[in-house]
Simulated scan of single mutants.
Amino acid sequence: MLRTHHEGHFSQRSGWLRAAVLGANDGIVSTASLVMGVAASGATQGNVLIAGVAGLVAGAMSMAAGEYVSVSSQADTEKADLHRERLELKAHPEFERRELAGIYVKRGLDASLADQVAEQLMENDPLAAHARDELGLSEVYAARPLQAALASAAAFAVGAALPLLTALIMAPRFLMVATAGSSLVFLALLGSLAARAGGASILVGATRVTFWGALAMALTAGVGKLFGAVV
């Protein structure tokens, strides 16, 4: 009995992985920075939590809206390209066949074989062949606005909940240190998981995310301390 072999590729995860990592990273960094900035200004723990919750809701909605608009624009462009290609295939099928064969020649096939491949693909599904080989569109990288929006919003909310939980359970005098420390740990774990899922270096992924998160929190805490002292 012939067994089928399914070979997974890291690139197949690129769509949802990008949205999830970006959302969670922004949730942790922005919320932790907001909590530390407000706390550094001398605000009460209740006000810090109110600011953090407001930041979570606003950030999640902003991520969802931004991702939906961005990916929708990409999807519109893909649809427009496919529509144009469909019209060209209907109006000039022979020219499109030669164009497809020329693509395969550039990729290393000899002219005769390229003609045969192009002809068979044109007989089967010409639009799919041109979408893949001429336009560079494929099902793996297809734009999915709603999926990207929901993934970004959910990931942001999960990421933002982590520093908020720390701010909720810690005593006020330990709030800034605990929020900063726990958030950096969360960021390191997030960077490691993202790197592992994407087949990249775990150390590089964790270091990169942690560095920028620490910088953001330090700057925001500094601003909060400055304006708190002025007020």
Rank of each mutant, 00 (worst) to 15 (best):
A214W: 00
G23I: 05
T179K: 00
A80Y: 04
M61I: 13
L121P: 02
D110G: 09
A65M: 15
G37M: 00
H9N: 10
E88Q: 13
L113Y: 01
E96Q: 14
G27H: 04
A171M: 09
L82H: 01
F95I: 14
A154V: 15
L189A: 12
L164R: 06
L82V: 03
V69M: 15
L113D: 05
T210Q: 10
S30Y: 01
G59S: 09
R107I: 02
A32M: 13
F95D: 14
L127R: 01
F156T: 06
S33H: 06
L109A: 07
G66K: 11
L89N: 08
I50F: 12
I50M: 14
V177F: 11
M122K: 07
A24D: 02
A91T: 13
V35Y: 02
E78T: 12
D125Y: 06
A153G: 06
L203D: 08
V53P: 04
G55A: 11
D76S: 15
Y141F: 14
A167M: 09
G191F: 02
H130F: 03
S33A: 14
A143F: 08
Q147I: 09
K90E: 13
P126D: 13
L17A: 13
Q74H: 10
M217Y: 01
F10K: 07
S201N: 15
E123P: 05
R132H: 10
A65I: 15
S33N: 03
M217S: 01
G46V: 09
V57E: 03
A131C: 10
G15C: 00
A229Q: 10
E119S: 13
S30F: 03
K106Y: 02
G23P: 01
T166L: 09
S182N: 08
A91H: 13
E134I: 07
M176T: 09
R196E: 08
A161R: 08
S112G: 05
R86M: 04
P145S: 10
G52E: 05
A167T: 05
E96T: 02
L184V: 13
A101V: 09
L146Q: 03
F186S: 11
L190R: 02
M217Q: 04
G224M: 07
T31M: 09
Y141Q: 09
A43S: 10
E67N: 09
L49R: 04
A111P: 01
G42P: 07
P126H: 13
S11L: 14
S30K: 02
T220C: 04
F95T: 14
E119C: 00
A161S: 15
V231T: 11
Q45C: 08
H83K: 14
A171Y: 12
A128R: 13
E99S: 13
L219Q: 05
A188T: 11
L165R: 01
